[in-house]
């Protein structure tokens, strides 16, 4: 368009020539742009593959030495070079699961309160406060957990938990001992505090996408707030809520610093949540600097590779779940 205006008075041939030059310029720019975005995209793929290959190569000696035994062995003896990954894998999964079990209801509760029942004037400050929680660096949670939270739990909470669950079979095994402040439950509690903001802010954002007319209609039919949330808001936003949950789970699985401080770092599987344990990331953070080159280092690579795979499986499972929900809703 601008070309034509510039060239008023020129003959038709020149005009076409000019115009196609401009268009060629545009096409070139477009190609360059799409190439740039393509490179950006491939960079991620290449880095991801590179990390995976590097981890696997590092892990290979350990996998060759221990085979499948690595996944079921509880031994962890650097002097004898006997390594089993089970305690770390178990600790990673159990601490994340407990954290999710605590954080999911609380995070959803915060989101529901903020979108449905909170007075308008309070919505913003509370929302910001929750988001600030997400901005606290994990080392701060670790220090706070070690210096304040863990001693507090050991002295005031653990004894009453043990006493309360003592007469109940099964549960009394899960809540036994409790003489250490740093244990699996402490780590899970710290993790849950860290992931609540993820769950609540994502949930709040998707709850706000529910069309007001739907909710108004439900209220008009005489629904209580609980019924509106359960029958209208949650079904409408299920995909987003699960997405937020998976984001939180991903963070919990990989969290290193805070967990290292408060989980107790013991390579043992104890039935009790009040006993110390360890996670994959805590083990790597603890032992990598002093690990001798060779089998010990390779074992830590192997654990890193396993964590990579676990995270991948979790994300893939989340995708799959979302796809099934979407398909079911589509039908």
């Amino acid at each position: 368009m601008s070309g034509t205006m510039l060239n008023v008075g020129l003959d038709a041939a020149q005009l076409t020539e000019q115009r196609s030059k401009v268009l060629r310029g545009f096409a070139r720019g477009d190609r360059a742009f799409s190439l740039t975005t393509l490179i950006a995209c491939w960079t991620v793929v290449i880095i991801l593959t590179g990390v995976m290959v590097a981890l696997f190569r590092g892990a290979l000696p350990a996998f060759q030495a221990f085979g499948w035994e690595f996944f079921i062995s509880q031994r962890w003896s650097p002097p004898k070079e006997i390594f089993g990954g089970l305690p770390a894998i178990y600790g990673t999964l159990i601490s994340s699961l407990i954290a999710m079990a605590i954080a999911m209801p609380i995070g959803l509760g915060i989101a529901i309160f903020l979108t449905e029942t909170c007075p308008m004037a309070l919505r913003k400050p509370i929302g910001i406060a929750v988001e600030l929680l997400a901005g606290v660096p994990s080392i701060i949670y670790g220090i706070w957990g070690l210096f304040i939270f863990a001693p507090f739990l050991a002295e005031h909470v653990n004894p009453s938990l043990v006493k309360f669950f003592a007469p109940i079979p099964l549960l009394n095994a899960l809540f036994a001992n409790g003489s250490y402040g740093t244990n699996v439950l402490t780590a899970s509690l710290i993790l849950s505090i860290m992931i609540i903001p993820f769950i609540s802010s994502v949930s709040r954002d998707v709850f706000e996408t529910v069309p007001a007319v739907l909710k108004e209609a439900a209220y008009g039919l005489g629904c209580t707030t609980w019924e509106v949330v359960r029958k209208v808001v949650i079904p409408h936003t299920r995909v987003g809520v699960i997405g937020g949950g998976m984001l939180a789970l991903g963070r919990a699985l990989g969290e290193t610093m805070a967990v290292t401080f408060v989980i107790g770092n013991a390579h043992r599987i104890n039935p009790s949540f009040l006993d110390p344990g360890t996670t994959i990331s805590a083990t790597i953070a603890n032992e990598f600097t002093e690990a001798d080159p060779g089998l010990y280092s390779s074992t830590l690579f192997a654990l890193g590779f396993i964590l990579f795979v676990i995270t991948f499986i979790v994300l893939a499972a989340a995708r799959l779940m979302l796809m099934r929900i979407e398909r079911r809703l589509g039908n």
Binding site: S77, P78, P79, L146, F147, A150, A154, Y180, G264, P276
Partner: peptide
């Protein structure tokens, strides 16, 4: 158990660094 920079501890909790052990002992 043996001798090394990290060993297979049969009991107890692990804390990071001298300061971590000091804090855990002081706190429990």
């Amino acid at each position: 158990i043996g001798v090394d920079k990290a060993v297979e501890w049969p009991v107890g909790i692990g804390a990071k660094g001298n300061e971590g052990v000091a804090q855990n002992v002081a706190g429990a």
